[in-house]
Each structure stands twice: as structure tokens, then as C-alpha cells.
């Protein structure tokens, strides 16, 4: 009662009432300050290695080995990047990685996309089992599979080839694609395809003209996840390939670690930055879907 009268008394007819400043609340202010302090700490601690990686890749070798280290380079230089391309096999590794990751992704998208469509749209005996098995595949330890796969690769004379890596990576990217796309197809109403069939499409046309365009964002997302998985993959590369011309980035860079008498930290860090760029670019592409995809259990832990 009295509050109503008060605010009425303070206001001009037709004007605004008394302005209630939120910042005037001490409790509110303290909690906001806390939030910013925490956020600042978290960002600087977690972000520091990233910052350091990028910054140091532009340092001259003198500065890289100087102690105490300087936080910003005195002389910014691109020498590390240039040397990486001139003195090392980095370009070869990069192309190999593109071939392996691209090949595995494409194979999983085509094969797994069709499989997921079938799992989502049709009812048949053993369908649930198949769905559960795809999830299980996805949980299998790589070290368990690498031993028999190594055997097959050697037996088939595919050792030290990129194709062996493409196929081996598919063992993980295919279940990922199937599991993810199955739920994606489930979210596209079946009535759209039915409608298309009544409108005059065959089942196949309905898939191509209606379902495929609608599933495209999902295919792009899961393609990025698959690509990233294969781009990062290390164990298969380590076991299956050995020659310089067949190395992928993860293996190539890894063999440089600990050989800092040969390869400078500058080049290594420049390489690290370049390896990260495609991944980050791809993630920017699907950024909005990332949270959804990951929280649906749609992606493996690397």
C-alpha cells in the first residue's frame, strides 16, 4: 500500500517512476566483481598456452631460447614459418593429412549417412542391436584394434600407405557418423518424405530432394567431427606408416619433439599453429552446432 503511494508521489503525471539503479545494491556489485575476476583468471590460465604458442612462433631463435623469456617478441619474424616450408617436409605431411582426413570423412559420410538413414527410417529385425553396436564400436580402445589391423595391413601389403590410414580411421569415424546422423534423421519428420512421395517422388527422389538438403547441416557437422578425429589421429599413423613421404602431420610433428638440436622450437611452434588453423576454421563453421552435437554424445573425446 504505502509503497504504491510513495512511487506515485515521486512520479510526474505521464512520466517515469523513480529510477531503481541495480548497481546501487552492494550484494549485486560484489557478486559481479567476483564473476569478472573468476572469468579473467580462468581465461588467462587456460588461454596462456595458446597465447604462448602463437606468440613464440613469431620469435627469433635467440629470443626463443632466452631466459627469462620475454612475453612479447622484441622482433616479430616470419622466419620460423618460412623455414618450416623450406627446410622440412611439413608441406608433404600437410597434404598427407588432408588426404587421410578427407578420405576417411568422405567415406564415412557416404556409407554412414546411408546406413544412418536406413536405421532411422525403416523398422527391421536387429535394428536396435545394430544401433547399439555402432555406439559400442565407438567406445573400443584403439590399442585393441591396432594390433589385428596392423596384421591385416601387413598381410595385404598396405603397410606404409595412406589408404591404410583412411580405412583404419573409418573404424572410428563411421560409427560416429552413423550414431550422429541417425538422431539427425530422426529429427527430420518422416511426413516430409511421405508428402514428397505423394507429390510424385519415388523414395529415392524424396531422399535426394527433401531429406538430403535438410540433413546437410548435420552432415557438415559430423563431417567436421570426423575430419578432426582423423586429422588428430596418431596411433594408427605411428604403427602403419614410417617413410617420410607417407607421414601425416601428427606423426611428423611428433617425431620432431625431442630433436630440438635439429628442429628449432620456432619451427615446431609455427607448425603447431598451422596444424591448428584448419581445425579451428572448421569449428567456426559449425560453432553453433558444436554444443548440441557434443552434448548428444555425438563426438569422441579427441
Amino acid at each position: 500500500m504505502s509503497t504504491t503511494e510513495l512511487s506515485l508521489a515521486g512520479s510526474q503525471p505521464g512520466g517515469l517512476g523513480r529510477y531503481n539503479r541495480q548497481a546501487a545494491d552492494l550484494h549485486y556489485v560484489t557478486s559481479r566483481v567476483m564473476v569478472y575476476l573468476l572469468a579473467f583468471t580462468a581465461v588467462s590460465v587456460i588461454g596462456f598456452p595458446l597465447f604462448w604458442m602463437v606468440i613464440c612462433s613469431f620469435k627469433t631463435s635467440t629470443e626463443l631460447y632466452q631466459f627469462p623469456p620475454a612475453f612479447l617478441p622484441h622482433d616479430w619474424t616470419l622466419t620460423n614459418y618460412r623455414d618450416l616450408f623450406i627446410q622440412t617436409n611439413f608441406p608433404i605431411y600437410f597434404v598427407n593429412s588432408l588426404v587421410v582426413a578427407g578420405g576417411a570423412t568422405l567415406l564415412s559420410l557416404v556409407v554412414g549417412g546411408l546406413g544412418a538413414y536406413s536405421l532411422s527410417r525403416f523398422k527391421f529385425a536387429g535394428m536396435r542391436t545394430v544401433s547399439m553396436l555402432t555406439l559400442l564400436c565407438y567406445m573400443l580402445p584403439e590399442v585393441l584394434l591396432v594390433i589385428p589391423l596392423y596384421l591385416f595391413v601387413v598381410d595385404l601389403g598396405m603397410a606404409d600407405t595412406l589408404i591404410s590410414l583412411i580405412i583404419a580411421n573409418t573404424a572410428f569415424t563411421l560409427p560416429l557418423t552413423m550414431w550422429f546422423m541417425r538422431s539427425y534423421f530422426n529429427a527430420i519428420p518422416a511426413s516430409l518424405e511421405e508428402s514428397a512421395m505423394i507429390d510424385g517422388c519415388s523414395r529415392f527422389q524424396a531422399m535426394r530432394k527433401v531429406t538430403l538438403p535438410l540433413a546437410l547441416p548435420g552432415l557438415v557437422s559430423v563431417g567436421v567431427f570426423s575430419f578432426n578425429h582423423a586429422w588428430n589421429e596418431f596411433l594408427f599413423a605411428l604403427v602403419f606408416t614410417s617413410s617420410e613421404t607417407k607421414k601425416v602431420l601428427s606423426l611428423g610433428l611428433a617425431t620432431w619433439i625431442g630433436q630440438d638440436n635439429i628442429y628449432s622450437w620456432g619451427m615446431l611452434l609455427a607448425g603447431a599453429v598451422l596444424v591448428t588453423i584448419p581445425v579451428v576454421l572448421f569449428y567456426l563453421l559449425v560453432q553453433r552446432r558444436l554444443v548440441v552435437g557434443l552434448s548428444e554424445g555425438g563426438v569422441k573425446g579427441e
Binding site: 519428420p189 511426413s191 516430409l192 508428402s195 514428397a196 512421395m197 505423394i198 507429390d199 527433401v210
Partner: peptide
């Protein structure tokens, strides 16, 4: 097959193709 029956159907959720304009939706059949 549904396409060979010369029927038309309006679905409960209308089943409009979300990626097509209204014009293209109507032109689709």
C-alpha cells in the same frame, strides 16, 4: 506407390519443405 495414385494429402504438421520457398513448395509436385 503413393506417387502413382494421383492423390494429394495435407498432413497434420503440413509437411511443408522447410528449405524451399512457398512458391517452390507449391511447384514441387
Amino acid at each position: 506407390h503413393p506417387k502413382d495414385r494421383n492423390i494429394a494429402m495435407v498432413f497434420q504438421n503440413y509437411a511443408l519443405y522447410p528449405h524451399l520457398t512457398i512458391y517452390e513448395n507449391v511447384a514441387f509436385p
